Simulated assay, not measured.
Amino acid sequence: MTRWLITGANGMLGTALRAVLAGQEPVALGRAELDVTDAASIERAISAHRPDVVLNAAAYTAVDAAESEHAAAYAGNAEGPAALAAACAAAGARLVHVSTDYVFAGDATAPYEPGDPTGPRTVYGASKLAGEQAVLAASPRHHVVRTAWLYGGGGANFVSTMARLAREGRDPQVVDDQRGSPTWAGDLAAALVELGGADVPGGVLHFANGGETTWFGLARAVFSEVGADPDRVGPCGTDQFPRPAPRPAYSVLGDAAWRRAGLTPPRPWRVALTAAFVAERDALLGR
């Protein structure tokens, strides 16, 4: 039986991973038990639990704050994963590390594939790219899985925010000039577990729910899911919501490499959104 260890187990993705692996008794560690920014904490956890596969859901995700918190961003997204990857390699464990579309420039017109040139435009993206490189350098068995526009019932995110606004009777203006592939944490968690148990060579893969939309399109879909009139959502441009960290105009990730690896293809984002509200409606609605 595979011995699984989940880092960042109390976050949105970590919560979804715990649910997927509930019948396999994974070791699920939050920051109090395993702080990925502390090499000694990593060594203790790997030594104590001797996992076969480590699923790294721990990360620094404050995209805007990272612009002024360089050290914290690199500690959580680069130095921590480097230490974790090295400890896993030394113990003979395989690491499945989660990364992001922000490693790309965001100016493409066709879905990004794993081998496409990177070019992060934010501190967050640069820190995640550094983490990817460190993980891959530590062992040829390790995996990096990039995803995008992640949402779920285990934490604050765009979908839960839109569901709350719909419930409160508010009519938001939402950006309509950024495109991506909304991805349910439940589907990503199942995909990571499948990869962790599969005989697939290490390297970079992409997993995001299929198809693409804008934040405006996603917001309208969320309103529909909660029984609200989607016409209450209005479109606007990125320039109306300036942020410290520039957002990618195009974040769609291609799944060709994932499919070639023989792994289960991701389902369309709209189908996954409906499934998410069936599975965790109360959590997404903040109840």
Rank of each mutant, 00 (worst) to 15 (best):
R3T: 08
R3H: 05
W4G: 08
L5C: 08
L5G: 04
A9H: 04
G14Y: 04
A16Y: 02
R18M: 03
A19L: 15
G23T: 14
E25S: 15
A28D: 11
L29E: 04
E33D: 15
L34P: 08
T37W: 05
I46N: 07
I46Q: 12
S47Q: 13
P51W: 09
P51K: 08
P51D: 14
D52S: 08
D52H: 09
V53S: 06
V53W: 04
V54D: 07
A59M: 01
T61D: 03
A62N: 11
A66I: 00
A66Q: 05
E67A: 13
H70N: 06
A71N: 03
A75F: 09
N77L: 08
A78C: 12
E79S: 06
G80E: 09
G80K: 14
A91K: 07
A91Y: 02
A93V: 01
H97Q: 15
V98C: 12
G106M: 03
T109V: 10
T109P: 01
P111H: 04
Y112I: 08
P114S: 09
G115W: 10
D116F: 09
P120Y: 07
R121A: 13
G125H: 01
K128P: 06
Q133H: 05
V135L: 11
H142A: 12
H143N: 09
H143F: 14
V144P: 05
T147Q: 06
L150M: 15
L150S: 04
G155N: 10
A156Y: 01
N157P: 02
F158H: 04
V159L: 11
S160H: 00
R164E: 09
L165S: 07
E168S: 15
G169K: 02
R170P: 00
D171A: 15
Q173L: 08
Q173F: 09
V175G: 04
D177W: 03
D177K: 03
D177T: 05
D177G: 08
Q178L: 09
Q178N: 07
Q178S: 03
R179T: 15
T183Y: 10
W184F: 15
A185G: 14
G186H: 01
A190K: 15
L192M: 14
L192T: 07
V193K: 08
G196T: 01
V200Y: 06
P201A: 15
P201C: 09
E212Y: 03
F216I: 01
G217F: 08
A221F: 02
F223R: 04
E225T: 01
G234V: 02
C236F: 06
T238C: 11
F241L: 15
P242H: 13
A245W: 09
P246I: 05
D255G: 14
W258I: 13
T264H: 14
P266W: 07
P268Q: 12
R270N: 05
R270F: 06
V271Q: 12
F277Y: 14
D282E: 15
D282T: 09
A283H: 10
A283T: 01
L285N: 03
G286K: 06
R287W: 07
